[in-house]
């Protein structure tokens, strides 16, 4: 296996990471986005409106499309719960997550690695899936690490909500044939 890199250094361990971070600072981090309802924006404790949108769209793509009648990521408020979760996280995790979202969404970074000229939130769903896959399978370990962080938070907040269980036929503890014994 290749060597480890610290979570705090994951964006900085490559030249591209340094460039991306520098470029990201040039792009406004917190453009008020019309897609976020004002009542949601008022509840946010950690995310900026743009970061909330990034988290929302990331979680949608990572969790996949729920079949008819089953709860999706919006139904269980994954992005809002991520906001509450990260608001209580250790400061080093908070700092890294802000950086992660900035770089992940940044149009310059998307161009550098995937020759896309749009930020993640403005891509089509198919392009978003392709972009996520490029992070998941990247030869750069810091991109794979970033993908894992996004996958963890998206899926843990989705599947800890009981509304997500119907689609996977999970109905609690005990073996089904032993309940009531």
């Amino acid at each position: 296996m290749d060597g480890y890199s610290s979570r705090r250094r994951f964006l900085k361990e490559t030249l591209f990471g340094v460039i991306a971070l520098a470029a990201a600072k040039i792009i406004p981090l917190d453009s008020a986005h019309a897609e976020i309802a004002s009542e949601i924006q008022q509840q946010l404790k950690f995310f900026s409106p743009l970061e909330f949108l990034i988290m929302k769209k990331t979680a949608e793509r990572i969790a996949g499309t729920s079949s008819d009648g089953n709860a999706g990521t919006d139904d269980v408020n994954v992005a809002l719960r991520a906001d509450a979760f990260l608001a209580g996280a250790d400061p080093e995790i908070q700092e890294q997550f802000h950086q992660l979202l900035t770089v992940f969404n940044g149009a310059l970074f998307a161009f550098l690695f995937d020759f896309r000229f749009t930020s993640f939130v403005d891509m089509s769903p198919a392009d978003q899936d392709s972009y996520l896959k490029s992070w998941m399978t990247s030869t750069l370990s810091f991109r794979r690490t970033a993908f894992q962080a996004l996958k963890r938070i998206s899926l843990s907040l989705f599947y800890t909500d009981s509304r997500s269980w119907n689609e996977i036929h999970y109905d609690g503890m005990f073996l089904p044939w032993e309940r009531g014994k």
Binding site: G64, L132, K151, S156, Y159, W165, E167, I168, H169, Y170
Partner: peptide, 24 residues
Amino acid sequence: YPTLASLAIPGFGNAHKELMRQYT
């Protein structure tokens, strides 16, 4: 458990969801 399963199952998106539907 469901969350552990979701994090262990490879990949993401609709292919991941398809496997999660076979959870039991």
